[in-house]
Simulated scan of single mutants.
Amino acid sequence: MLDSPFDAPPTNGAQRRHVMDRTGGAQAGSGHPDAVGFRPLYRQVYDTLLKRLADAVWQPGQILPSEGQLAAELGVSQGTVRKALDALTADSLLVRRQGRGTFVADHDDKQSVFRFFKLRPDREGAGMPTSRVVAIAEAAASADERGRLDLVRSARVVRIERLRALDGRLCLIETISVPASLFPGIAQMELPNTLYSLYAIRFGITIATANERLKAVALGAREAGLLEVAAGLPALEVDRIAVDLEDRPVEWRLSICLTQELHYRSVLR
């Protein structure tokens, strides 16, 4: 069993406060939400379950124990567990399946793919994006790669260049850099369409968030040739840093996207 801040079900209020004290929650006698150090109990459960995901206790696609089982193990109410699971689901780390239970998100699922693939056709009904690797190689990290991925001067990276299509039409070219130390052997692998699934299953690295910067650019000659369109067309550059569950930058991805019949879709909450 993993070490948990919820070692045993509390039997009274004093014990509950003791549990919260040990986990960085409200101090004894300081239950007001504005008190310094206060963290709602469901957020403590969230963090405990998040650590299990980071430690690969549960694998992508695996079903979690029931809410009742988790509540009994962690010593909290079933409602508190449900609220934590809802938050993890909202963060796309878990998937609820009606009548079946709660599962660890698998990046091969359409829901998970479109969490990170934001291009959509102007008309409705997009299919799944596909990909084709153009080049892959390991090399010494450039100054830009070291800066973006927080790497030491001697670090090496694996660079992946690939084309992606939506509904059978080429729509973007992307260059991906990952630390070679975190992804040993990836340069020799046959890469799947969804890299984030490979990261989780083969390397135990789950992408939690992605920070993106968008910029309008003109399509260069090389990119235009690969995308089979004219050079100079307007395009969208998406500069992404993907961060894992341990808050480490683990991937730098630069995508050049055609937008003549596509748009970038983002939902703000």
Rank of each mutant, 00 (worst) to 15 (best):
D244T: 00
V250L: 05
R253C: 15
L236N: 12
P249H: 00
L254D: 11
D247M: 07
A235N: 10
E228G: 09
W252R: 08
A231Q: 02
A231M: 06
A231T: 11
A242R: 07
V238A: 15
L236M: 14
R248V: 00
S255F: 12
I256C: 12
L233T: 10
A230V: 13
V238E: 13
A230G: 03
E246S: 12
P249T: 04
D239H: 01
E246P: 00
E228Q: 15
P249W: 02
E237W: 13
E237H: 10
I256Q: 13
R240F: 11
A235P: 12
L236G: 10
P234Q: 10
A231K: 00
E246Y: 10
L236R: 15
V238M: 05
V243F: 01
G232D: 11
P234F: 07
P234G: 02
D239A: 02
E246L: 07
E228V: 14
A235L: 10
V243L: 05
L227H: 05
D247N: 13
E251A: 09
I256G: 04
A230M: 10
R240C: 13
W252P: 01
E251R: 03
E237G: 09
S255P: 13
R240Y: 09
A235T: 11
G232K: 08
L227F: 09
V243D: 01
E251I: 04
D239M: 09
A230Q: 14
W252V: 03
A231I: 06
D247V: 02
V229M: 00
